[in-house]
Design a protein around this nucleic acid. Sequence first.
DNA 1: TAGTCGCT
DNA 2: ACAT
Length: 215
Amino acid sequence: MTPDLFGDENQTWSEALCPGAVVLRGLAMPDEAALLAALDDIAAAAPFRHMVTPGGFCMSVAMTNCGAYGWVSDRGGYRYDAADPDSGRRWPRMPDVFLRLATDAAARAGFDGFAPDACLVNRYAPGARLSLHQDKNERDLGQPIVSVSLGLPALFLFGGSRRDDKPARVPLTHGDVVVWGGPARLRYHGVMPLKDGLHPLVGGYRINLTFRKAA
DNA sequence: TAGTCGCT
DNA sequence: ACAT
C-alpha cells in the first residue's frame, strides 16, 4: 500500500489504507497537568539541546530524553545511550503518567504489552522541522512507535518504506497520538517546519513525546 | 541523508 | 547535487 492512496493534503489516513498505523485524535489525558509538570521536571534535569547529525549539522529540533535509554546523535552516528552525554548521568526516569499514556495508546492501536524503555522528547520552535527518516536504531522492530503531540499544531509527513514514496500529510495537534508498527514500522516520516503560534498551555512550542522499546 | 543549498 |  503506497502513501499516494491517501489522496489530498487534508485527508486523514485510516487503518484500512495504512495497515499498522493509527492516529488517535484528542486522546483523553487523565492528568494533563501532571503530564506537563513531569515534562518540566525532565527538562530541568536534562535540558533540551540541539544534537548534531553524523553529517555535522545542528538539528533544528531541540531534544532531551527520559527512561532507561535516550536517543542521541553526534558525528559518530545515531544510537541509544543510558547516559546523557551532556551530564554523564542517567536520563530522568520515565514518569508513570508518560508510561500509562504510551501503553494505553499502544493497546488501543492493537499493540498489547508495549513496554517502552525510551522516551525521546522533541521540542519544536517555529521553523523547526525533521526531514524524512526511519526509526531503525531499536533492537526489536516488532515493537511499535508511539508519538504524542503537545502544544502547537504541526503537519506530520508519513511516507512509505522508500524515501522517494510521496508522504501523506497528516495535521496533528495537542492531544493527538500516532502509533505505527508491524508492517508500518519502518516507514519514513518527518515534520514540516513549524508555524508560529501560541498554545494556551504549552506556549510557543510543539512538544513531541516519542516512546520506543530501544533495548 | 533525524542535513543544507540552488536551480527549474 | 553535495558530502558524511
